[in-house]
Design a binder for these strands. Structure first.
Length: 823
DNA sequence: GAGCATGAATCAAAT
DNA sequence: ATTCATGCTC
């Protein structure tokens, strides 16, 4: 190794260095919070390049957000001292979108396909449910959409969903899934989940395509591996490994000698024009996978189960890849010891995890503070007072964050900060691109770009109001569907769709506007905007849309004070488009430019757009948004049972994930950490009495300051609720007697639960989150996300033994095994 | 087909 | 508390 490469190992601790130098093959880096995982990733990429193990273009690094991707790229560039052009750093979704743009035709799409966000897909699901005559009260579009999303994230085809459906609800969902998927194809659209799922389809159905990408990326690195879902797991497997279960036949059903096996991954004939040849093609001659998969993550920070992320991906890594090396990073470079003690003590209450113990040499530091306040207003004022105090001590506002479980909690804090005249920024909440006016404008672009997109059409056709109501829209859509054309074709000849005179007139006006916009898109800028050449400037197109349709004029004429803000948002969209035009000077034709713009807009999260704030604003955000960030001072507010942990999580037994979320929050803090709760809070409706979060009682006493215990044991300052009985009934879940305490297994350290709490103690519940009992019986056919179909051989205590077709017997932990019955 | 008023339902995290 | 849907009138 030359000195040039050796330089990249300097300053790394021993395990970090081993990870960077790892010779190849599967590698799991368990990176505790603040243990320098970004450092390991960036140094590893740079090291691979410098030692000549891989060219920049032969590395794929996958991150969780676009922002993280940009930062990783930047830091690799710094390390290498040169451009990182050619290096793929992307989120799973943007990497897949990029691949799918190129390969879209193989899947029955054109490369202009639209990416539907959750709002778009919700509308489409609703349309399908209504067409099916389903009761949308019982089968809410959102609920059904989430179920479909879960199916997709677990790579379940429509057929599998139908087979697995146990009750009427599941069957309705499966039917909606079938119709929805057909509609997506008809609309030339994919939802977020499809970006993963269809890429997996692509790789499974086209071994040559998979081989191409597999050969292209000799090393694959993944950040935040604990939050990957089964689809993402499969994607990585296909990219890196020998093909373990090549045949795509979804329902187990034996090998590739079975009846052609050409069951579509999702129904909807014609979606995959592929014949059966590729499915049944022999594997002979296929090159082995390079196996150079490095994943980095922390099981204690797995917080996206609701998005079907599966913590078992990281817990079972060695089982999946028996030759894997595992390196643990436990030295924390971020926080002082009291903060780490709090984090360690809390997470010790989880059972389903890899043991680890964070330590630091930054010293003990401040004690963690727990505070109870009489109500939410007092809580907000207390936090703001502390912000001011710390600011007086020289902590910049940009180094302070207020974190909460739900966005609804930001409001009170915002009010208090405003009253104190402190600058703040809120990350998340309603995404910029989700605002109605911004979505309207983008939908215009989407529909101009992809006329088959009926969701976008339905959204914009009557906005601003031009007298085209639901009935007319319905007629246009069904006529388009009946004739196999697009709404664009229909509005050119409205009479053919059987529209009456008045409707025809309104539609024709709209058609004229659309025609004008298409001219702009085609390059003939009508009114001297960027008249040179034929290159499309997206900013000009946005402007034309707002002008030609009269959208802007209507807002300007409005007296509604909110419309001013809407205009500002549209200006921001324009600025965003302008920035895009500057950064990515129109390569290729207008189609490609719009592809990239719309894809970028669809996949950008709000957090991605937040600039760093050197000039000092306090940051407010949810715990989920805080992942990966760090602040000198952190305030975790709303630590009350029902708020955090959220009542729905309590009900559905997701306490371990909630606890990990608390762990994420605590470990964001470098030097100061405060956790607060309010005895009374008005959240939805009138103020309610609250009880402290069970997580507060799991914090080790030694890590807390001397006033913290009072925040739980007594009611100093008269914070006692005055409306006794009714409030108690509203608490609801005060079920368990004392003694069900969570402290028992928690490693011996004294914690607040031991203090003999009054009301709060009744809530102590240690066993809420036991895994659901699963009773597998011998002979039962099951399916596994990794090993496909198999048969249960026997039960052995908690262990279930399964003989998988073609994979032999595996021993799996019954409660956690990724098994599903095949009915 | 649009606009308004009233009543009802919802209220977790987000690429 | 706020959003959303429905029903009524013009």
């Amino acid at each position: 190794m030359d000195a040039y490469a050796a330089e990249l190992l300097e300053g790394l601790n021993d395990p970090q260095r081993r990870a960077v130098e790892h010779p190849g093959g599967p590698l799991l880096v368990i990176a505790g919070a603040g243990s320098g995982k970004t450092r390991v990733l960036t140094h590893r990429v740079a090291y691979l390049v410098r030692t000549g193990q891989a060219g920049l273009g032969e590395i794929l690094a996958v991150t969780f957000t676009n922002k993280a991707a940009a930062e990783l790229r930047h830091r690799v560039g710094d390390l290498l001292g040169r451009s990182t052009k050619g290096l793929w750093v992307a989120t799973f979704h943007s990497a897949c979108a990029r691949i799918l743009r190129v390969e879209a035709e193989k899947l029955g799409y054109t490369r202009q396909f639209t990416i539907y966000d959750s709002d778009d897909s919700k509308r489409l699901v609703k349309r399908v449910l209504e067409a099916d005559g389903a009761d949308t009260k019982r089968f809410t579009p959102n609920g059904v959409r989430n179920q479909i999303s879960d199916h997709k994230n677990r790579l379940r085809s429509v057929e599998q969903a139908q087979q697995l459906a146990a009750g009427q609800y599941d069957r309705t969902v499966a039917d909606a899934y079938a119709g929805y998927q057909k509609q997506l194809v008809a609309n030339n659209a994919m939802d977020f989940d499809d970006l993963m799922g269809r890429t997996v389809d692509l790789f499974e159905r086209y071994p040559d395509v998979r081989a191409r990408y597999r050969n292209a990326f000799k090393h694959v690195l993944v950040d935040e591996y604990q939050d990957t879902n089964p689809a993402q797991y499969r994607f990585l497997q296909l990219l890196c490994m020998d093909d373990p279960m090549h045949q795509a036949g979804p329902s187990g059903g034996g090998g590739r000698d079975a009846t052609g096996g050409a069951v579509d991954a999702v129904s909807g004939e014609g979606r995959l024009p592929l014949g059966q040849d590729a499915l049944t093609a022999p594997l002979a001659g296929e090159e082995p996978g390079h196996r150079n998969l490095m994943v980095v993550g922390d099981d204690a920070q797995s917080i996206y189960g609701f998005r079907s992320a599966d913590i078992r991906n990281i817990l079972d890594f060695e089982d999946d890849f028996p030759d894997a090396e595992v390196i643990k990073l436990e030295q924390n470079y971020r926080s002082t010891q009291h903060i780490l003690d709090a984090a360690n003590g809390l997470i010790a209450n989880n059972t389903n995890q890899r043991p680890k113990h964070l330590f630091t040499d930054l010293g003990t530091g401040d004690e963690v503070r727990v505070r109870a306040l009489p109500d939410d207003h007092a809580e907000a004022r207390w936090v703001v007072g502390e912000v001011e105090r710390l600011a007086g001590e020289g902590v910049p506002l940009s180094q302070m964050a207020v974190l909460y479980r739900t966005n609804a909690l930001s409001r009170g804090i915002e009010t208090a900060l405003t009253q104190a005249e402190l600058e703040y920024q809120v990350v998340g909440g309603v995404r910029f691109f989700d605002r109605a006016e911004v979505k309207d404008a983008l939908s215009y672009l989407q529909w101009l770009h992809n006329p088959a997109n009926t969701v976008a059409f339905a959204r914009v056709v009557n906005r601003p109001r031009r007298g085209i109501g639901d009935t007319t829209v319905g007629r246009i859509l069904s006529h388009a569907a009946a004739t196999g054309t697009t709404p664009l074709d229909v509005i050119k000849d409205p009479a053919a769709a059987g529209l009456k005179t008045a409707a025809c007139k309104a539609v024709s006006t709209f058609a004229e506007q659309v025609a004008e916009l298409h001219e702009t898109l085609a390059g003939g800028h009508p009114e001297g905007a960027a008249a040179d050449g034929g290159d499309l400037r997206v900013a000009d197109l946005v402007e034309d849309v707002l002008r030609v349709t009269g959208y802007r004029a209507e807002l300007e004429a409005s007296t509604d004070p909110q419309d001013e803000g809407r205009l500002e948002n549209l200006d921001q969209l324009h600025a965003f488009a302008d920035e895009f035009d500057e950064e990515a000077p129109a390569e290729g034709d207008a189609q490609h430019v719009l592809d990239r713009f719309l894809q970028g807009a669809a996949l950008l999260s709000d957090a991605d757009r937040k600039a760093d704030n050197p000039d000092g604003q306090v940051t407010l955000m949810t715990l989920h948004n805080a992942k990966g960030l760090e602040y000198d001072a952190v305030f975790l507010v709303g630590c009350e049972d029902g708020v955090f942990p959220h009542s729905r999580a309590i009900d559905s037994g997701e306490l371990e994930e909630e606890r990990r979320l608390a762990y994420v929050g605590i470990t964001r803090a470098r030097r100061h950490l405060s956790l607060t709760w309010a005895r009374r809070r008005a959240l939805y409706g009138p103020p309610q009495s609250q009880v402290p979060s069970r997580f507060l009682r799991e914090l080790p006493l030694d890590a807390l300051d001397e006033t913290s215990p009072d925040a739980l044991s007594g009611q100093p300052g008269g914070g006692m609720p005055t409306r006794g009985r009714r409030d108690f009934s509203s608490i609801g879940r005060v079920g368990r007697g004392p003694g069900g305490g969570a402290g028992g297994s928690g490693g011996g350290a004294a914690n607040l639960a031991a203090l003999g709490l009054k009301r709060g103690s009744a809530l102590a519940g240690g066993d809420d989150d036991a895994p659901p009992a699963v009773n597998w019986r011998p002979g039962q056919r099951v399916r596994h996300v990794k090993f496909d179909a198999g048969e249960v051989v026997r039960m052995d205590g908690d262990v279930v033994v399964v003989r998988f077709d073609g994979h032999g017997e595996k021993r799996l932990i019954a409660g956690f095994a990724r098994l599903e019955p095949i009915t």
